[in-house]
């Protein structure tokens, strides 16, 4: 909660960060979560704030 609020505070779009409890036996939930997240991030587009410049 602290992370997501902070990220929004510094100007990141809500939804870029998410935390879920998924047990190792909940394969369906993993797939579903990843699918949802991927779709959402695709809509948000690339994160221009924290480009890796290593």
């Amino acid at each position: 909660m602290l992370v997501s609020r902070l990220l929004e505070y510094v100007g990141l779009e809500p939804g870029r960060f998410e935390m879920r409890w998924i047990s190792a036996s909940e394969g369906g939930k993993v797939a579903e979560t990843v699918r949802e997240m991927t779709e959402r991030i695709r809509k948000l587009g690339p994160n221009r704030k924290m480009r890796d410049e290593r």
Binding site: L6, L7, V10, K49, M50, R51, E53, R54
Partner: peptide
């Protein structure tokens, strides 16, 4: 490394966060 030492806005963000 988690983060480069380069002075760059994205890396600065990461540093501060």
């Amino acid at each position: 490394c988690w983060l480069s030492k380069r002075n760059h806005p994205g890396q600065n963000y990461l540093f501060h966060l």
